[in-house]
Amino acid sequence: MSGCGSSAASGGAAPTGAAPTGGQSATAGNTQAATPPTQQRVQPAGVEVPRIGAKSTLVPLGLNADKTVQVPPVEQQMQAGWYTGGPNPGEVGPSVILGHVDGAGKPGIFNRLHEVKAGDEVLVTRTDGKVLRFVVSRTEQVAKSGFPSDAVYGDTTKPELRLITCGGSFDGAAHSYRDNIIVYAALAS
């Protein structure tokens, strides 16, 4: 029942309340270096992955008390969110969007993320109505014990996007999937 979302959910599965706000304030600190001031930043509103028929609005996600990234509530398995501690989609840097592979006994928004291939497109709608088109450069399935933090969160020279969900086999004792599925994409134009 609890699943691998539980450990994060204990600290706060995210989208509402104060936590995301904290994430946004952290982002505000970041804007001085690489991005425009917070007031001028256009936020992402939705994500679509045509290849797998995934489409969702986006909720802001911050950090839990233990510094792990927040995720949408596991009961809202069809809800995706973006990490506010980094650049917003369209800004230079790695924007991170997270979604559940499953939850509450039902498939999640990124249940078929492992089917995405290089060359596929990912569309991100912003609050100003503009649609950003990202193209997948590569995908990978990695053990959570060896999560590639540098590849996911490290600096980039252009606007990039990461889609992340759980994958691999399910560890019943740990109530967690053993792997992560990560999709790397870059802004098309």
Binding site: G3, L63, K67, H100, G103, G105, S145, S149, I164
Partner: peptide, 20 residues
């Protein structure tokens, strides 16, 4: 060093509720 994501999350995201 990571200027673009200054608050880098720890560990791997936990994004699943268990097999359907």
């Amino acid at each position: 060093a990571g200027v673009q994501v200054p608050d880098r999350p720890k560990g791997a995201p936990q994004t699943g509720g268990g097999p359907v």
